[in-house]
């Protein structure tokens, strides 16, 4: 098999010509995107190189403590971002995000690396870090979508919920429909991705494996595992997030905390 072609520094800089084309269009059409584009390009270079060097050292050190620490940092960032996407602040949401993302991701990651792939040693960063990152990233988006959707539904259907409460329904019964629709909203992008996968474009991970010389059939098997694990992580995390968050909007006396909604 032919070795993979490394992209040299000079050739990488040549790739900037593509951004020059975007800049030209932005300038000519007065889109005003030049500044954002330059910052975005610089950050793309910086962030990815920092991660690249970090992974080189992480793989070389090969210690489970460092892998765990990396996860904790990723988890903190993911929780922060997920909560930031809520339109209205929810007291305690950060901890709810930490718990739901940690539990949902850890269960999925342990199952995939231990049972499905059989990674050895169990913490091998070459497998655990990229797979864990994909799981956490998708779980984050799922939890944020579920939380945001629930909040939106509660705002627009507050009268319906109050009608049910006034009839004597328990708080959780009164928000049941909203809760279901929020979990559905979190799951639908993942299910759509599963329906479309491979038809128009190849997923990033599979493309990467093929480019680096892996047989397409091996890459396909990994991609199937990735799609299934994402579905699992999104479902677990959005379910846990809502399960905990919904109770924040209600009091033990089945009252709606309207100041968190309106």
């Amino acid at each position: 098999m032919k070795p993979i072609i490394n992209v040299g520094t000079f050739h990488l800089l040549l790739a900037l010509a593509m951004i020059a084309a975007v800049l030209a269009i932005s300038y000519r059409e007065r889109l005003g995107l030049e500044r954002d584009l330059i910052i975005a390009t610089a950050r793309t270079f910086l962030q990815l190189f920092v991660v690249g060097y970090f992974l080189v050292y992480l793989f070389a050190w090969d210690r489970w403590e460092l892998v765990l620490l990396t996860f904790i940092l990723m988890l903190a960032a993911a929780s922060w971002i997920a909560v930031g996407r809520l339109t209205r602040p929810l007291p305690g949401a950060r901890w709810i995000a930490v718990v739901s993302l940690a539990v949902g991701s850890a269960i999925t990651l342990a199952f995939v690396t231990h049972v499905v792939i059989g990674v050895d040693p169990w913490y091998d960063p070459r497998y655990v870090i990229p797979i864990g990152g994909m799981i956490l990233g998708n779980a984050m988006t799922g939890a944020a979508l579920a939380g945001e959707r629930f909040q939106g539904e509660l705002r627009s259907r507050v009268e319906e919920v109050e009608t049910l409460l006034a009839l004597g329904f328990a708080g959780l019964e009164a928000v049941q429909d909203l809760y279901r629709s929020a979990i559905r909203a979190a799951m639908i992008p993942t299910i759509n991705a599963m329906l479309a996968v491979g038809i128009v474009q190849l997923p990033g991970m599979m493309t990467g494996q093929i480019l680096s010389g892996t047989s397409p059939l091996v890459a396909v098997k990994y991609q199937v595992v990735v799609m299934l694990m994402i579905a699992c992580a999104v479902a677990l995390s959005s379910f846990l997030f809502l399960h905990l968050a919904v109770r924040r909007y209600l009091t033990p006396a089945h009252q709606l905390r309207r100041h968190l909604i309106v």
Binding site: E160, T163, A166, L167, G168, A170, H254
Partner: peptide
Amino acid sequence: LHSLDPLEIRRRIALVLQQAVMF
């Protein structure tokens, strides 16, 4: 009121909201 079951209260003291929401 706070010593009674809130769900029981809402059945015995029924509130009809301003906006009549139909399911």
